[in-house]
Simulated assay, not measured.
Amino acid sequence: MGMLSEGQRIGDHYEVERFLGQGAFAEVYRVRHRFLGRQAMKVFKHIGSREATEELLGEAILLSRIGHPNIVRVFNADIVETGSGRYGFFTMEYVPGGNLADFWHSHGDRFTRIGEAVQILRQICEGLAVAHGERPPIVHRDLTPQNILVGYDRDELRVRISDFGLAKRTDLLTGLASARGTLAFKSPEALRYRKGDSTAGDVWAVGVIAYLMLTDTLPFHDVSSPVAFFGTPRNEPPPSPQLRNPEVDDELAGIVLGALEPNLRHRTPDAARMGERLRQWHNGNARQ
Score class of each variant (00 low, 15 high):
Lys45Ala: 04
His68Ala: 14
Ser49Gln: 00
Asn70Met: 02
Val43Phe: 08
Val43Lys: 05
Gly67Ser: 14
Ile66Phe: 12
Ser84Gln: 13
Tyr87Trp: 03
Gly83Arg: 15
Ala60Leu: 04
Val80Phe: 09
Glu81Cys: 06
Val74Asn: 10
Glu54Ile: 07
Glu54Ala: 02
Val80His: 14
His46Val: 03
Ser84Trp: 10
Leu63His: 15
Phe44His: 08
Phe75Glu: 10
Ala52Thr: 09
Ala52Glu: 14
Arg50Asp: 11
Ala77Met: 07
Leu57Gly: 10
Glu51Thr: 12
Ser64Val: 07
Lys42Thr: 01
Pro69Cys: 06
Ser49Gly: 13
Ile47Gln: 15
Glu54Phe: 06
Gly48Tyr: 01
Glu51His: 10
Thr53Ile: 13
Lys42Asp: 06
Phe75Leu: 12
Arg65Ile: 00
Leu62Glu: 05
Ile66Ala: 05
Gly58Arg: 15
Arg50Ser: 08
Glu51Arg: 10
Gly58His: 11
Ala77Ile: 00
Arg86Phe: 09
Phe75Pro: 06
His68Met: 08
Leu63Trp: 11
Gly83Asp: 14
Ile79Gln: 09
Asn70Leu: 03
Gly83Ala: 15
Ile47Gly: 09
Thr82Asn: 06
Lys45Thr: 02
Leu63Pro: 03
Val80Ala: 12
Glu81Thr: 11
Ser64Thr: 01
Glu55Asp: 10
Ile47Glu: 12
Glu81Arg: 15
Ala77Phe: 07
Asn76Glu: 14
Leu57His: 03
Leu57Met: 04
Ile61Tyr: 01
Ala52Met: 02
Gly67Gln: 08
Phe44Tyr: 13
Gly85Gln: 09
Ala77Tyr: 09
Val72Pro: 14
Val43Glu: 01
Leu56Met: 13
Thr53Asn: 12
Asn70His: 15
Ile71Asn: 12
Asp78Gln: 14
Leu56Thr: 05
Lys42Pro: 12
Ser49Cys: 08
Asn76Arg: 15
His68Trp: 00
Val72Tyr: 09
